[in-house]
Nucleic acid binder design. Structure first.
Length: 277
DNA sequence: ATGCCTGGGAATCCCAGA
């Protein structure tokens, strides 16, 4: 099963890019973030026409998350991250898909830090810790996928020194991510490619993509059930070079379902997708 | 220290993103 996650940065504004990528990549499951569309302005017709069922949680102007499944409709298990009824941001949606629980998340950016937005980010992280632990304890395979707005290590940023005070890279943020991972999650792309530079986001400013001045902030976290079946993964970098594109690139993994026996064989595509020169 | 760019929404500028 091929699972992708993509911060689309406006699902209506980027619809041509999204459809072009879906047609080319044909993932079985897709998590989207930053829909930037109210609930009633999600382009459900175009998504259905592309062959996908979908659940989504919209919001006027900002945020918004969706889960797409090819040839079926996801069974929703959560809408909104549990733990704070006052939090109205659309940043989490969860579904049961082929015996897997899939959480699609858009973690708050948190800038400027310190400040109230950074406090919100850390509080959101606390709630994610609690919910993730609960999911981990259930005996169901789990994938947490999305835009975490976390640069996990110095290896995940083109120039660490310029990001030390940023909410994506501050010690509190990295510690919160590490604390989450230590519950037993596997950072799928880093595990597949322990020594590679992997970036998933390039700023619109400063010609960042051409300079490969990127960040790795989109992630897949796998529960232990799924690690043995992790066969491949990559970043669809070319999408970031298209016209009127998002500042993120889609990322994907190929995982075997634990109940369906052997995972698919690793492909030779892997090295090509990650090469930067 | 700030803008560089971009989308959304309201109004032809502001907010937010990372």
């Amino acid at each position: 099963m091929k699972i992708a996650t993509y911060n689309v940065n406006g699902v209506n504004g980027r619809l041509p890019v999204l459809l072009r990528w879906l047609a080319k990549s044909r993932p079985d499951v897709v998590c989207l973030q930053e829909l930037k569309a109210p609930q009633d302005r999600f382009p459900i017709g175009a998504i259905n026409d592309a062959g996908y069922g979908v659940i989504w949680h919209g919001q006027k102007s900002w945020n918004g998350v969706a889960i797409l499944t090819k040839g079926s409709t996801p069974v929703e298990t959560n809408r909104g991250l549990p733990g704070d009824p006052e939090d109205l941001h659309s940043r989490y949606i969860e579904a049961a898909i082929d015996g897997i629980t899939l959480g699609c998340l858009y973690l708050p950016n948190g800038n400027p830090a310190p400040g109230p937005k950074f406090d919100y980010k850390l509080r959101w992280f606390d709630r994610l810790h609690k919910h993730a632990r609960k999911l981990m304890k259930a005996d169901t395979p789990v994938i947490l996928a999305g835009d975490f707005n976390v640069i996990p290590t110095e290896m995940d940023v083109y120039k660490p020194a310029s990001w030390v005070d940023d909410a994506l890279f501050r010690p509190e943020t990295r510690a919160a991510f590490e604390k989450l991972v230590k519950q037993g999650w596997t950072d799928a792309l880093r595990t597949l490619f322990p020594n590679d530079r992997i970036y998933t986001f390039w700023d619109y400013f400063r010609n960042s993509f051409a300079r490969n001045a990127g960040l790795r902030i989109d992630h897949f976290l796998l529960s232990p059930h799924l690690v043995a079946g992790l066969a491949d993964g990559g970043v669809d970098r070319e999408v970031r070079g298209w016209e009127r594109t998002s500042d993120h690139a889609p990322i994907w993994i190929e995982v075997g379902l634990p109940s369906l026996g052997k995972p698919p064989k690793a492909s030779k595509k892997r090295a090509r997708d990650l090469r930067h020169d």
